[in-house]
């Protein structure tokens, strides 16, 4: 049994991110972290592999700075890591990602489960997750908040999903691609020994040729990045007793026509 989890490095959530003079996105010298949603995916991969006596591999697709997320993953306890990159993926869209990700999963034998964090906070999307599943021809189970049962021999899984209107319990055949929510587990912190081991790890880099696929022509592209429009709100502080504050606030909200 083999679990594969995907991750990436994203700017620290507290970092100031802006568009630089050259039009590129910059976060200055702020650190990168594991994409916050992926911490839950990484933890779940470790747990699943451990429970089933299998192996957990973490993969990132992107240039070298994504090794930082991979090293963090190894330090948490993932068994192996690999990074996929190729100049042909420069400027690619989610179809490019999905093609590479599906090929990387196929390269690893015996994979029953692929786990993603709910979305990537840098690109602000989860589309690559579902597209990877389609390129593999596997089932998708998104927004998983609990894995209730899994049987790798019988190739079945039962999960709870957190949807807008409530909780859904669904069973599926394996292999499957799942995306997990924050609620699913408590991600562990890397141990001291884990960090030392990970810092020495040499992470293999796979090109598209290694994976036996070509990059598809991008169907969409980013034209430019923009900084947020300056928020012209001047805060109006409302003072008085709680009753006076309440009355004045209601006046304002009625004027704003938001009630």
């Amino acid at each position: 049994m083999h679990v594969v989890v995907f991750t990436r490095s994203t700017p620290d959530t507290a970092a100031k991110v802006e568009v630089g003079a050259n039009g590129a996105v910059t976060w200055g010298d702020a650190a990168t972290v594991v994409n916050p949603w992926d911490e839950y995916a990484l933890e779940e991969a470790i747990l699943q592999a451990k429970n089933a006596g299998g192996k957990a591999t973490v993969i990132a697709i992107g240039p070298e700075f994504h090794n930082e997320a991979l090293k963090h993953s190894l330090a948490m306890g993932l068994d192996e890591a690999a990074r996929v990159w190729d100049s042909a993926l420069e400027g690619s869209d989610s179809l490019g990602y999905a093609t590479a990700a599906a090929a990387a999963v196929r390269k690893l034998a015996d994979v029953d489960l692929v786990i993603f964090g709910k979305e990537s906070v840098d690109v602000g999307t989860d589309q690559h997750i579902y597209q990877t599943a389609r390129k593999l021809g596997w089932t998708t189970l998104s927004y998983v908040s609990k894995i209730l049962a899994v049987d790798y021999a019988a190739k079945t899984i039962k999960v709870e999903r957190l949807l807008e209107q409530g909780k859904q319990i669904v069973t599926s055949r394996l292999p499957a691609v799942i995306s997990v929510m924050k609620d699913i587990n408590e991600p562990r912190y890397p141990s001291f020994i884990g960090i030392r081991k990970a810092s020495k790890a040499v992470i293999p880099e796979w090109s598209l040729a290694d994976l036996g696929v070509a990059a598809p022509a991008p169907q969409s592209q980013v034209v430019q990045f923009q900084n947020l429009p300056v928020r012209n709100v001047q805060v109006e502080m409302i003072a008085g007793t709680p009753e006076e504050q309440a009355a004045k606030l209601v006046d304002r909200l009625l004027e704003e026509k938001v009630l």
Binding site: P11, T13, K16, V17, E18, V19, V25, V121, D122, V123, G124, P218, Q219, S220, Q221, V222, V223, Q224, F225, Q226, N227, L228
Partner: peptide
């Protein structure tokens, strides 16, 4: 079709266009 969409947790706006 050209769209705007938030990226980097809403700290940046991306302008993207489809084929």
């Amino acid at each position: 079709i050209k769209v705007t969409r938030p990226v980097y947790a809403g700290k940046i706006i991306s302008e993207a266009v489809g084929s």
